[in-house]
Design a protein around this nucleic acid. Structure first.
Lengths: 66, 66
DNA sequence: ACATAAAGTAAATAATAAATGACATAATGT
DNA sequence: ACATTATGTCATTTATTATTTACTTTATGT
């Protein structure tokens, strides 16, 4: 059961938001957003909730298990 | 924006499941479940998704920001 | 009253998320 | 061609999650 994400897709859907813009909104570094997009790690549920809020979508739509 | 949870409520709703049973289902230690219930920490979104699956509920119903 | 299971808690350690700084490459605009 | 912005990537450090062991306290049952 490994974590997958389509954060990248969501980021482009939402006004072509940049990694930096998203990072600023949820108050993490740009590298953190990058690492999450690349599946390098498994963010906290708090961060996932913040990201989901930005995209006004359920956490499950952005992060899922496979 | 701090993380809150009602994992405990969900655990009791679901067949009075014990911390240990839940821990075994999602493959973490009992102390990890305990710490999450007590708001001691902010689990990974992977773990949150596994827990949400157990309760067949959206992550947002079990974990939320306040 | 006693035994047992469940839950609370705490300290030490391991594993991993996240920050920071630095530099390279790709893309976009003028 | 040049400047600028966005993204990729790496190495180091710091913060936090999660494990493990161990012991205490609180139910629950007989």
């Amino acid at each position: 059961m490994t974590l997958k994400t389509n954060l990248r897709k969501y980021r482009f859907l939402k006004d072509e938001m940049t990694q930096k813009q998203l990072a600023d909104l949820v108050k993490v570094s740009r590298q953190t957003i990058h690492a999450i997009e690349r599946g390098k790690f498994n963010p906290s549920v708090r961060l996932a909730l913040l990201i989901a809020q930005v995209f006004q979508s359920p956490v499950e739509d952005i992060f899922y298990l496979e």
